[in-house]
Design a protein around this nucleic acid. Sequence first.
DNA 1: TTGTAGGCGTTATCAT
DNA 2: ATGATAACGCCTACAA
Lengths: 341, 341
Amino acid sequence: MATKKEITIYDLADKLKISPTTVSRGLKDHPSINKATKKRIFDLAEEVGYRTNHFARNLRQQRTNTIGVIVPLLISNFTSTVIAGMENVVNKAGYNLLISQSLESYKKEVANAKTMFDSRVDGLLVSLANESMNIDHFDLFFNKNLPLVFFDRVEEHKNCTSIMIDNRKAAYNVTTHLIKQGCKRIVHITTILNRNVYIDRLNGYKEALSENDIKFKEEYLIIGNLSQDAGAKAAEIIRQMSPLPDAVFAANDITAVGCILALNRAGIRVPEDIAVAGFNNDPVSRVIEPNLTTIDYRGYEMGETAAQHMINHLTGLSNIKTTHTIILRSELITRASSLKS
Amino acid sequence: MATKKEITIYDLADKLKISPTTVSRGLKDHPSINKATKKRIFDLAEEVGYRTNHFARNLRQQRTNTIGVIVPLLISNFTSTVIAGMENVVNKAGYNLLISQSLESYKKEVANAKTMFDSRVDGLLVSLANESMNIDHFDLFFNKNLPLVFFDRVEEHKNCTSIMIDNRKAAYNVTTHLIKQGCKRIVHITTILNRNVYIDRLNGYKEALSENDIKFKEEYLIIGNLSQDAGAKAAEIIRQMSPLPDAVFAANDITAVGCILALNRAGIRVPEDIAVAGFNNDPVSRVIEPNLTTIDYRGYEMGETAAQHMINHLTGLSNIKTTHTIILRSELITRASSLKS
DNA sequence: TTGTAGGCGTTATCAT
DNA sequence: ATGATAACGCCTACAA
């Protein structure tokens, strides 16, 4: 079966004996078109299965109704939750999402930015790769005055909104909680300190220590790649410390889980010997035994917020450039893994 | 700063004192263009930051270089793994992915199909919602002879490739393994039996039973929504059975995990009292204690395969319509949760 | 309220 | 090897 010819507004115009202009206007509910005419247009369009050609429209209007998203990793509960939130918002507004992942690589992020630019997305939502040392590759967007919103992994930039949580405070709360449970030798497992999220968490941790007159010890800072395996490796290091630390605060749940499993295997009990806390409230935090104390980080909300700001800007409802930083709420959830009593 | 005017092939042509046609050809490395001319074109394009206008090209060529993806749920380890695999393949081929989720709803899937169609994607990759009772909404694509590939949750259709694993055999292997461990009263937790994946798993389960002269009992079939909570609810039902079943085979890992946790809470030991097996090899299967026996279902490979077939078809390397079903390998992984000895 | 005309940037077709 | 021209389908001044 050969591909049928596409219906255009010209075809509709011919059949209705009116001009293409009127059809075009009728279709987008232009106020100055007769109601009866509109109805005839809509009815016929429906009947013959007309669909607007977005390329023609985009070509004419110089916009794509597509929003680009660059995330570090697609395979992550947090990421897919964020994207689900974005999808929900942009779909309602008639926009589409173009998604790509940097795999934490600076090089890939640069390439992704270029691809997004060449695809002429109307705006870009970005969570930065851990490797990225600068954000010059987004100058493509800044120079053309295209809206860019950072979320989660953000970087300061003039005229550019960032959506984040207060990582410092959240980490401060986790650490303070551990201290209140009587812990004094608290290890922090994190990754290379390039991104705000990890730097802020470290600072919150340090702040809680210092406020309780506990000296920060360099050896209690373990750097890995925040994978489950990194948690296991950290457990190995911890096991050989003397005296044994009495608590672990990992910068994400997966790492905390890897750590707990490895500690258990080594005969170290959680929380009796070592209390453990994570970050993110990943579903896995309620699977591990004991259940993991963590920070409830609402990815869905963050995705919705980032997308909504983009949409509002694109539709002229607001101007992204005026707002600089939006802090979403996050919350400490205490579970068995950190409760000494 | 005002938005700078976009460079077009006309601008390049003017500066080089050649025709736009030649520029267009040079840019796509057309064989009949002089090497020197090509070099001049490329150099200038690079210098002035020319970027091709995809809308103009799409408008002219009637194609988008975009492939649509409809999945049941974005928030799922399996799904994000599949999408990562697809992304890897299509990016290399210069295509983009347009992703949407049906949330297991028939209505939303119909809407998504329409949106994809209106976005004029070059092809569609689909994993069906559990609710969907038919696939008539994809006639939009079939009628226009647009390529459609089903993956994981498939449905038979003339001239349409499906990528799947042998769910029947996998379930048969799981069940046989449980029987070999000495289990005779094996519960199967699954969801409404609309989709091939669940029907086939049930059939594999039944087949293994019958081959071992174990009668299939209707009451051992527990239907839920395959969430963690559904696993917990199933555990409640199981707990009240007398005699107590000696094994559980859940149609996915999350449900198996929910079940194990609830059984533990009720003082029922796994695997001593009840052996448990899941399906998917979700990372959580290695977090739960005891580690979960499951089926290694490689989502990344499935994503790559589905995408590659689509690309091959679109680039004329092969014809999707000639291949009907591709079965990917899957494998039983036995772990502590099912080992009685 | 409706219509006319031109252009958005590219590429296919038909010349040269 | 290169060029002129038209067309893809839509939108928006401007005109009526």
